[in-house]
Design a protein around this nucleic acid. Structure first.
Length: 274
DNA sequence: CGGGCGGCCTGGAGGC
DNA sequence: TGCCTCCAGGCCGCCC
């Protein structure tokens, strides 16, 4: 579910609410997420510690705690993290919760259990197997057409799969890959070996624009997504192609098509994308 | 090695 | 109403 914009929206919403608060205790009702949650370690490395910063890397949310540890969470496909008062009853599929000194709890709900909760030393993040292979942050410095073009050298994958490869760049999932390609006017099946420098530049600009706009609009809520206060996003209204098979393209009046690439749906406009 | 595919889960939608 | 199949925003390991 959540791609870069959703995790960034979540991060921004939580940051002012939880910085300076202290984790009093942790509850793990169901440890079987994508990887088993290590209760002992989680308890040992988080309880009694104050939250000093809230960051994002790729689609991971990172909370740096006192004592040089970082709490890592990933929402998988269906995860939602919200801050509620202690007294609010546990919701369906609420698997893990952090009770804070302020009398609130940060809870993780994740029906499909593709999410992740980990804790590690802050200095271990870069070498950790979840992070070490990750590519460029598309909203950070050092991302542009030139970088994309050089990463594509000696590869021949379809450009849509390339954009979704976390070793290349992070945060772009199935929705934003389709949307960015539409804005750049590039056909999703085009091989990365056959894209000109000008079009790489246009694609990098489109990725940045699409992601930034989605963050501004609070992310895309198709089913589950909400920020830390439970507010849903608005970017689904701005989607030009995603989940719009058969609808009319706003630019050329053609019909949006759906195809399957590497087992995932891709949406595009045959008139606008070459 | 790059790239495609299946599997991990549950729930919602749509067909009959 | 129920039952079945298909599909879903991520990621990883396996295979060719």
């Amino acid at each position: 579910m959540p791609e870069l914009p959703e995790v960034e929206v979540l991060r921004r919403s939580l940051e002012p609410l939880i910085i300076g608060d202290t984790i009093a205790r942790v509850e793990v009702w169901n440890a079987s997420l994508r990887e088993p949650v290590d209760r002992r370690k989680l308890e040992r490395l988080t309880s009694g510690r104050t939250i000093r910063s809230v960051r994002r890397r790729a689609k991971y949310l990172l909370a740096d705690l006192d004592g040089g540890t970082t709490l890592v969470t990933h929402l998988g496909m269906s995860g939602r993290m919200t801050l509620v008062a202690d007294g609010v009853p546990r919701e369906l599929h609420e698997h893990v919760a952090f009770f804070l000194d302020s009398g609130r709890r940060l809870r993780l709900r994740d029906p499909r259990r593709f999410g992740l909760v980990l804790v590690m030393g802050t200095d271990e993040l870069d070498e950790d197997r979840h992070f070490r292979h990750l590519g460029i942050e598309p909203l950070g410095n050092g991302f542009g057409g030139r970088e994309l073009e050089s990463l594509a050298r000696r590869r021949r994958a379809p450009v849509k799969s390339f954009l979704m490869d976390a070793r290349v760049l992070v945060g772009v999932g199935n929705i934003y890959a389709s949307e960015a390609l539409y804005r750049a006017g590039i056909h999703p099946t085009r091989s990365v070996s056959r894209i000109s420098s000008v079009r790489w530049q246009r694609l990098a600009d489109s990725i940045r624009q699409t992601l930034s706009q989605a963050v501004q609009e609070g992310g895309t809520t198709l089913n589950d997504f909400a920020d830390g206060r439970g507010r849903e996003g608005m970017f689904q209204v701005s989607l030009a192609t995603y989940d719009r098979e058969g609808e009319t393209c706003g630019r050329c009046g053609g019909t949006i098509r759906r195809i399957v690439q590497s087992g995932r749906s891709t949406y595009y406009c045959p008139g606008c994308q070459r």
